[in-house]
Every structure is written in structure tokens, then in C-alpha cells.
């Protein structure tokens, strides 16, 4: 009897750990599966440099990635050099969403460090970002040749991530 009692805590904790792993796994899936294989949402916002009003039809060069960034976002500066590299990649177009930011500061930053984007959509209230289910910056979405969202990546975009998650949709 003593033996059964002393194994009881083990059993209880094994169940606990197993269920925690399941919760954790469910959590991850939810974050990624939201908009995958859906159309890019409609929007109507001005461009960062105020030159024109943009809508979904302006994102015309398929496939493309669209990067959510802001001046207050430190990690965005980490991925900035890599975005500059991507700008020179003929297989892909890079668009930006300037998220909850100050227009002047944002333009200033692009002047100083270089502009990797074909254009940036100015989204100070995060309207488009909400439609995309954005949690914060940086986030990057890949829209494939068929116009559907293929990848959502939260956090810095690095060459490793690019290889692992993005390249298979571009060729």
C-alpha cells in the first residue's frame, strides 16, 4: 500500500505536466493559424510620406512581405539591415505598415537609416493592424502569388527565419 501512495504524486504531476504541454501547444497554433490562407484585409489609409491614399489594390507586386514597424520598436532596428538586403531581392517586394507612430519621427528614421520599403502605410491608430491581428511590432506577413497570406512571423526577421519559414513560398 505504501508503494502506491508514494507513487501518487508522480502520477498527479505527470498528468499536470502533460496537460500543460498540451495547453502550450494549443496556444502556439492559435497565434499562427488566424489569417493563414485568407485574403489580405481591405484598408484605406494614407501613405507615410502623405503622397497618396492607399488601399489593398496598391499592394500589387505579388508575392510580397509586409512588415509592421515603428520608431518606438527596438527590435525593428535589429531586423532593419536584413530588410535592406531584401529590398535588393528581385523575387520579393517589401511593404511596410508604420504602426501607432509619429509621422515625422518615422520619416526621420527612414532618412537616417535607409528605407527598405517600396512604401509604408501610415496606420497611427492600428486599424489595419487590428484586422491583421497584430500583437505588437515587429511582425511580418508573407502574401503569396495567389494573393493569400502564407506566413505570419512575430519578432525580428532574420536570415535564419527567412530560410526556415519564408523561402519555400517564393520561387
Amino acid at each position: 500500500m505504501n508503494n502506491i501512495v508514494t507513487k501518487l504524486p508522480l502520477v498527479v504531476f505527470v498528468i499536470l505536466v502533460a496537460s500543460l504541454f498540451i495547453f502550450l501547444k494549443n496556444d502556439n497554433q492559435e497565434l499562427n493559424s488566424v489569417l493563414i490562407d485568407k485574403q489580405f484585409p481591405d484598408f484605406n489609409l494614407s501613405s507615410l510620406d502623405k503622397s497618396k491614399v492607399l488601399s489593398k489594390n496598391d499592394l500589387e507586386d505579388l508575392p510580397f512581405i509586409i512588415n509592421v514597424w515603428a520608431t518606438w520598436c527596438i527590435t525593428c532596428r535589429v531586423e532593419h539591415p536584413f530588410l535592406m538586403q531584401l529590398k535588393n531581392n528581385p523575387d520579393i517586394t517589401v511593404y511596410g505598415i508604420n504602426y501607432k507612430d509619429d509621422r515625422r519621427e518615422a520619416l526621420n528614421l527612414l532618412d537616417r537609416t535607409g528605407n527598405p520599403f517600396k512604401f509604408s502605410i501610415f496606420d497611427p491608430e492600428g486599424r489595419l493592424a487590428i484586422d491583421l491581428g497584430v500583437y505588437g511590432a515587429p511582425e511580418t506577413f508573407l502574401i503569396g502569388k495567389d494573393g493569400l497570406i502564407k506566413v505570419r512571423h512575430t519578432g525580428a526577421l532574420t536570415p535564419e527565419v527567412w530560410e526556415e519559414k519564408f523561402t519555400k513560398y517564393i520561387d
Binding site: E30, V34, K38, K100, I130, Y135, G136, A137
Partner: peptide
């Protein structure tokens, strides 16, 4: 947190999408 969306809301929004 300025970027915070209550997780319940985030989930609800996601459900509406699908």
C-alpha cells in the same frame, strides 16, 4: 501596455475571422 489587447478579445476577434 499600449500594445496590449485583452487575450479574450484577441481570441474572440480571431474566432470571428474563421
Amino acid at each position: 501596455d499600449e500594445n496590449y489587447m485583452p487575450p479574450e478579445v484577441a481570441n474572440a476577434l480571431k474566432k470571428d475571422d474563421s
